[in-house]
Structures are given as C-alpha cells and as structure tokens.
C-alpha cells in the first residue's frame, strides 16, 4: 500500500497529518511508558522484519502496491499503539531512505496500515479467540491487510472527486472508486492469506522461544 508523492491531493494528506499528529502524540507517550530494556530491542527486531516484508512490494494498476506487512505480528505481540508507532516509523524510513512511498502519503498510510491495521488485528484476534488460537491469529493477519486495503481503495478512488481541475480532469490519482475498489482489494484478499499464515507461523515461533503475545485487554 505504498503510494508515491503526487497521487494524493493536499485535502487528503493535510487532513491525515492533522489526525495523525494527535494519534502519534498519544502513541509515542504510550510506547515510552511501555518499552523497557527487554521490550525495546525486541520491538526493534519485529519492526525491522516488518520493514523488510514491506519493502518487497509489487505495484498494481489500481494505484497501490501489494506486500506483506507484519502489522498483526507487531500488534499482537506488543499492542496496537506500539504497532502503530513502529509501522509509522517504518513507512517514514522507507520513504526517506529508499523513496518507497511518498513523504506526503506517509500520514495516510500510517493511519491505514499502522493504526487501522493494528487495531483491526487486535479486535479480530479477541473476537475469534473462541474459534481456536490459530483461527484467531490467521483472522487477525488477514483482516489487518484487507481492511486497510479497502480503506486505501476508498481514499484513492475519492481523489478524482476531491481534487479535480477546473476542467473536471483529475489532478492527482486518476481512477475512481469503480476501478480502485476492485483493483486494490482483490489482490489484497490473496496477500491477506499469506499475511494470516505468516502471523500464525511467526507468533508460534515467538512463543517457542518465550516471547508471548500481549494478553487481550492488557498492554496497549
């Protein structure tokens, strides 16, 4: 879901920056309280893993990219706020160091992938726990990709309506919802399967070496 500069209008990225600023200040304060000498380097490991997973991305004609994210893994291991802050940093570092995803699209991507994705994973995991641990982990991974992708499709698809020139032609992303909803969501339905499997495998591997996910209703 990396979107380069020039595809989102200022109406979108300025609004996202304003909303994001409030959430980042809350998130950073929570993370500062939560992370200690043991947790911080471990958060670093999983964030570095998310960085690598998100770098392997494939562009799709509907106006975005498909890639794994490791968002559910971070959210279920360290909590939604930590995942949000870490994914925001990953997106910022990818934009700055490699030019992957534009700096103007970082706030939108951070809100969708980091905030919505992380809290979707936490909520779905809690909802599906009764169906079994693996089902809950898989569901958390799948929804953590598909829900942000659907919202990104809406954001992109609204660009021709919210940012058009005086002649009615698009100034930024050119395709409407009729194209983006299909083009962005369908590939992510498949990527979500991979993300779900990855979440199950990685959480189980972490448990084997003694790193337990945060309890439901526990650390934020």
């Amino acid at each position: 879901m990396h979107v380069p500069d020039g595809f989102l209008g200022p109406q979108t990225y300025v609004s996202a920056t304003v909303v994001g600023a409030g959430l980042w200040s809350v998130g950073i304060a929570r993370v500062r309280r939560q992370l200690d000498a043991v947790a911080l380097p471990r958060v670093g490991v999983l964030t570095a893993l998310a960085f690598v997973l998100m770098m392997i991305s494939i562009p799709i004609p509907g106006g975005s990219t498909v890639h794994f994210g490791g968002v559910a893994l971070l959210a279920l291991t360290f909590g939604g706020w930590t995942a949000f802050v870490c994914i925001s940093l990953v997106l910022l570092m990818q934009a700055g160091l490699f030019g992957v995803g534009g700096i103007t699209s970082v706030p939108v991507a951070a809100l969708l992938i980091g905030f919505v994705g992380a809290w979707t994973a936490v909520a779905v995991h809690r909802l599906l726990r009764g169906l079994g641990d693996r089902v809950a982990l898989f569901g958390a991974g799948w929804f953590s990709v598909v829900v942000p992708a659907a919202l990104m499709a809406v954001v992109l698809g609204l660009q021709p309506a919210v940012a058009a020139g005086s002649d009615g032609r698009p100034l930024f992303f050119p395709f409407g919802l009729d194209v983006t909803l299909t083009a962005v969501i369908v590939p992510h339905l498949l990527v979500g399967v991979g993300e779900g499997l990855l979440t199950v495998m990685m959480i189980e591997a972490l448990r084997r070496i003694g790193v337990e996910p945060v309890p439901a209703g526990g650390r934020a």
Binding site: I28, L35, V43, V45, T47, A48, F51, V52, L89, M93
Partner: peptide
C-alpha cells in the same frame, strides 16, 4: 528534541543492519 523516538529509530536501524547481515 525527541530522544525516545530517536532511541527507537536507532534500535530499528541497528536491527535492520543485523537482519541484513543474517540474511
């Protein structure tokens, strides 16, 4: 001005280097 954030960025950067070396 944000030492906590800088610490997190430093740790992530260090882990990226380590992960790159392991890979």
């Amino acid at each position: 001005p944000w030492p906590g954030l800088l610490g997190l960025i430093t740790v992530i950067g260090a882990q990226l280097r380590l992960l790159q070396r392991e890979l």
